[in-house]
Design a protein around this nucleic acid. Structure first.
Lengths: 219, 219
DNA sequence: CGGAGTGATTTA
DNA sequence: TAAATCACTCCG
């Protein structure tokens, strides 16, 4: 209920306020709506509406309605990701841990065949199950719904974490566009494979369990 | 008004309709979007989404989404995988790993916020914390990109999936649309929380270990 | 908050 | 580069 705080918006003339309201239920729960209020209290729900009201007194070409800030560079909205940002570096790091993943009928054997690069093994956290799981889970999540998903949320909310993590990694790699693209593809593929595997197996198990249940009843 | 006609689609089961809408403005004006409607009226905006919903009941491998016809020459997407291929085996591995996931106070809270009906919890094969966590983790992964939103399984009530997986659970409940909807929201929220928690934690660990390593070297 | 309509990004 | 998929805006 206190979520209705109206904050000043430096990108707009004095007196204009910005408000962000989180959706609480429904299909879009968790998403948010952004509103602006003129000095006189009039509410604006979209950039076109705002633009019409301000006319040519303010140039909103670079104004990002959602963040409330002026975006340099493009005259339009551009969710530009660039190559040396923390996200790309973090992806590179996790991809290193993922890339030699092998399948096996024995889980422990798989663990051995992961064959993490020595340097990264040493740098990374302890080799325990929990840490491995966290690493994989993070990588999977990072590679999904690329920009607007959990990735951007976490990154924007925890800049300190990203900066710390990527700092030491920066020294180890010279990252080219081509490399980053390759890494992203690999991560994406690895993620899809895991997803499909998870799905297929759980369905197979479910079917099997169901069959057993039925057989038990009729036996 | 412009009647956008929904035409029957012989390549799909009876009752399914196809619609083509021309974009009338913007940069992509003139391009068209193709939608399908299930017999119940649900709208589908892409082949993956359609495929998810129909599951194994219809093989869309040769289905051309844009034209709505089967194209025998064009095999593209592979969907069905079984437990003896590398992917399924990899899945078994990760399931093992998932089972050992221990929850911090963060993940504990995530679980609690899911607020599963008690009846459902008891009905499950294994009421242990580990199994519950595994199920949740699996669901999270299964629900992402290829499956579209995590809500897709429940939201679209994919017949193939639910028939197998929820067989034992279905008997205990009369599931209404409203209940499914509520559940979707909770899963959605829990997923976001888990994503953020996992990412923040694993990155924090990486940063910490790296720092310690560097300090050791310079000491 | 929903969802049609359109932009943005990814895939082939 | 276009086509396909996905994400988001904007207004009801």
């Amino acid at each position: 209920m206190m979520e209705r705080k109206r904050t000043d918006c430096p990108a707009l003339p004095p007196g204009w306020k910005k408000e962000e309201v989180i959706r609480k239920s429904g299909l879009s729960a968790g998403k948010s709506d952004v509103y602006y209020y003129s000095p006189t209290g009039k509410k604006f729900r979209s950039k076109p509406q705002l633009s019409r009201y301000l006319g040519n007194t303010v140039d909103l070409a670079c104004f990002d309605f959602r963040t409330g800030k002026m975006m340099p560079g493009k005259l339009q909205k551009q969710k530009q990701r660039f190559r040396h940002d923390p996200l790309s570096l973090a992806k590179l790091f996790w991809e290193k841990r993922l890339k030699s993943l092998r399948s096996s009928d024995v889980s422990e054997q798989v663990l051995r065949t992961m064959d993490l690069p020595k340097g990264l093994q040493a740098v990374g956290p302890d080799p325990s199950h929990d840490t491995l799981l966290s690493a994989i889970a993070s990588a999977l999540h990072m590679s999904s719904t690329p920009i607007t998903g959990q990735t951007s949320v976490a990154a924007e909310k925890n800049p300190a974490i990203w900066l710390n993590t990527s700092q030491p990694l920066c020294k180890a790699f010279t990252v080219t566009d081509e490399q980053i693209r390759d890494q992203e593809v690999k991560v994406s593929q690895a993620r899809r494979s895991l997803e499909e595997a998870l799905m297929a197996d759980s369905l197979a198990r479910a079917a099997e369990n169901t069959r057993e249940l039925l057989e038990g009843k009729t036996a």
